[in-house]
Simulated assay, not measured.
Amino acid sequence: MNFTKKGRVHFHTFDSLRFLSFLLVFLRHSPVPEDSFLYYFSKQGGIGVSFFFVLSGFLITYILILEKINNNGTIPLKKFFMRRILRIWPLYYVMVLFAICTPFILDFFNISYSNEGYQPNWLLTLTFLENYMAMYTNQLPNVSPITVIWSLCIEEHFYIFWGLAFYFISLKNIPKLLLGSIVFSFIMQMVYEKLQIPTLDLFTNIHYFAFGAIPAYIFVFREDLIQKLETVSAVYKYSYAFLVLAFIVFIGNS
């Protein structure tokens, strides 16, 4: 299949969408007063994490499709992985270093803290395998901010798998990859639930990335649909955004 080379589009709205995801996660792990308006959003940190996965699925799929189109059906994996490393690793390891120092800092200032959870295995933490430790112990680490690092581990595993998958498959087989990922993830969720294993790995979360990849595929290959969406009145778009926020509040407080 031959395609005309395409330039990359910068999605400005991603900044606001990322902030919404971050805010939900941040509020979930913050002592929000019950009389605060933000309290109604504080119970849905899980939605924030899931939405992060959806956004990553969209953006990474969009980048990989363009790489494949603009490089005659191939993907420069080394370049792709280096960009992911430079984007994730510096902040990740700063956070891990802070977590290692946290108990010493709290003890130095004689600040009390909760010791619930397991003692982190720093080797697993440094190698993006903390989520499997959380699954094995059925707990979260007892050191902040390592408690939320399992989602970053899944992100890293997704980058590796998705990069390799797009390297080997053709553009015409991308829909099969997306559908297969969704079906496989739902099956794995049922298996994990049956075995009472926490769903904190890529196998049980890859459907979020795949759902995000669907609009990325449409954006590249179905420009006619995108043009139709651009004609939708802003009133309907803002109404839809409001309904999404209302839905988040409803399911978190019902």
Score class of each variant (00 low, 15 high):
residue 52 F to K: 03
residue 145 P to Q: 08
residue 157 H to L: 07
residue 42 S to F: 02
residue 84 R to T: 03
residue 210 A to D: 02
residue 241 A to D: 06
residue 165 A to H: 02
residue 192 Y to Q: 03
residue 102 T to P: 00
residue 142 N to Q: 10
residue 84 R to Q: 03
residue 220 V to Y: 00
residue 45 G to E: 03
residue 169 I to K: 04
residue 78 K to E: 12
residue 181 S to V: 01
residue 73 G to F: 11
residue 143 V to C: 05
residue 163 G to V: 11
residue 197 I to R: 03
residue 57 G to I: 01
residue 114 S to E: 14
residue 107 D to T: 04
residue 215 P to G: 04
residue 90 P to K: 08
residue 221 F to I: 10
residue 75 I to H: 00
residue 252 G to V: 01
residue 187 I to T: 15
residue 92 Y to G: 01
residue 189 Q to H: 07
residue 95 M to R: 00
residue 112 S to A: 14
residue 176 K to L: 15
residue 190 M to H: 11
residue 168 F to M: 08
residue 207 H to Q: 08
residue 84 R to K: 06
residue 181 S to I: 01
residue 113 Y to Q: 12
residue 23 L to D: 05
residue 30 S to V: 05
residue 46 G to P: 02
residue 104 F to L: 09
residue 10 H to A: 08
residue 109 F to H: 10
residue 28 R to A: 14
residue 43 K to D: 06
residue 222 R to N: 15
residue 239 S to V: 08
residue 232 V to Y: 11
residue 26 F to Q: 04
residue 78 K to P: 04
residue 64 L to D: 06
residue 159 Y to R: 06
residue 88 I to D: 03
residue 61 T to M: 03
residue 199 T to S: 11
residue 239 S to D: 07
residue 8 R to C: 08
residue 144 S to D: 08
residue 42 S to E: 04
residue 69 I to D: 00
residue 46 G to W: 14
residue 165 A to T: 13
residue 217 Y to T: 04
